[in-house]
């Protein structure tokens, strides 16, 4: 039983090192070197007001905005205080009905052809800030109509907003919905 003392003391020492010194050191360096990222990559509108984080999606539903992916967070879509997915199983009838309703809502805005999966299937976090480039391009006619602006012009803005795969090959190309919508507000 001579190991009881080291068990308790080592536990306390590791709590101080791993639970105190380590996170404080990381916080100190992170705040000094990467302050924007460490504090949530906040974005501002044209007036300099903070309007969200470029990493956290928002529930746009007005036709004049680009729409994000469906979100299954509690209470309301894109609730950052309750991240999570739908956890719907692939044969769940209620889930299949929901997807059908989402497709219909898109068709009602004049969308034809196959619908990009990301636009009708909810993300894992419920906060996905991105949609696929196809999902953005497909919304151009609606947004152009609602804003009364030229489609070609809008097409260029969307194309410019596409983020490529990182280093050209990691991940997927994508469009940040909040950033794109803030871009539209500058028009």
């Amino acid at each position: 039983m001579k190991d009881i003392k080291p068990a308790i003391l080592l536990f306390i020492i590791f709590t101080i090192i791993c639970g105190g010194i380590y996170p404080l050191l990381v916080t100190g360096i992170a705040q000094a070197v990467f302050p924007r990222q460490a504090n949530g990559s906040l974005v501002t509108d044209t007036n300099g007001k903070v309007v969200g984080s470029s990493l956290i999606g928002q529930p746009f539903s007005d036709p004049k905005y680009f729409w994000p992916r469906p979100s299954a967070t509690a209470e309301f879509s894109y609730n950052p205080a309750a991240s999570g997915g739908s956890n719907a199983g692939p044969t769940n009838p209620a889930y299949l009905r929901t997807v059908g309703e989402r497709v219909k809502a898109l068709r009602d805005t004049g969308v034809t052809g196959p619908v990009p999966a990301d636009l009708v299937q909810a993300s894992a976090s419920g906060l996905d800030p991105h949609i696929s480039p196809e999902a953005a391009l497909l919304q151009i006619p609606r947004v152009a109509r609602a804003r009364g602006i030229d489609r070609e012009k809008l097409h260029k803005i969307v194309n410019d907003s596409i983020e490529d795969r990182q280093f050209g090959f990691i991940g997927s190309p994508r469009v940040n919905v909040l950033v794109l919508n803030l871009e539209l507000a500058r028009l």
Binding site: L96, G100, V115, A117, S123, D128, H130, S132
Partner: peptide
């Protein structure tokens, strides 16, 4: 899901990036 007119990959519960 695909037969409802959707591209044939499963993106439910996945992140675009």
């Amino acid at each position: 899901v695909v037969k409802q007119g959707i591209q044939s990959i499963n993106m439910e519960g996945k992140e675009v990036r």
